[in-house]
Amino acid sequence: MSEERTDRDWISRTVLPGGEEPDPRFTLANERTFLAWIRTSLAFLAGGIALETIGDGIFPEGVHRALSILVIAIAFLISLGAAVRWWRIENNMRKGRPLSLPLIVPLLSLGGAVAACLIFGMILG
C-alpha cells in the first residue's frame, strides 16, 4: 500500500485515513448517490410534517401522531444511513475492498410498506 499523501486536507485524512485515492468519477458518483438518499430523507421529513399538520382531521389523534413520528423517524434513519453508506463505500474504494450491500434499501422499503399499510388500513377502516 502506498504512503498517504500529505496534500489532503485534515478532514479528509481524519474521516478517510489510509488507502489510495480512488478515481474521482467513482468518488463523485458516491457523492451523487448520497445526495439522492438525502433528497429521499427530506421527502419523508416533509411527508411527516405534512401528516402532523393536516392529518388531524383525517385520522384519529393518536394514529396521525404515530404516523407522523414514524415517517419522521424513517427520514432520520435514511439520512443517517446515507452518511454511513457514503463513508463505507468511500473507505472500501480507497482500500480496494468489495463494496458492501446497502442496509438503507431494506430499511426504506420496510418503513414505506409499514406506513402505507397503516394508512391503507385507516382509509378502509
Rank of each mutant, 00 (worst) to 15 (best):
A66W: 07
S68W: 03
S68G: 12
S68A: 12
I69D: 00
I69S: 09
V71W: 01
I72C: 05
I72E: 02
A73Y: 05
I74E: 14
I74G: 06
A75S: 14
A75K: 07
L77R: 06
L77A: 15
L77N: 14
L77F: 15
I78H: 05
I78L: 11
I78G: 06
S79A: 13
L80D: 01
L80C: 07
L80T: 15
L80H: 14
L80I: 07
G81A: 09
G81P: 08
G81M: 15
A82C: 13
A82W: 08
A82L: 10
A83V: 11
A83P: 03
V84M: 14
V84W: 07
V84A: 14
R85D: 13
W86E: 08
W86M: 10
W87S: 12
R88D: 07
R88H: 06
R88G: 00
I89H: 15
I89Y: 10
I89P: 04
E90R: 09
E90N: 10
E90Q: 15
E90M: 03
N91C: 05
N91R: 13
N91M: 06
M93K: 05
K95G: 02
G96S: 13
G96D: 12
R97S: 01
R97C: 03
P98D: 00
P98I: 14
L99E: 12
L99C: 01
L99M: 05
S100H: 02
S100Q: 07
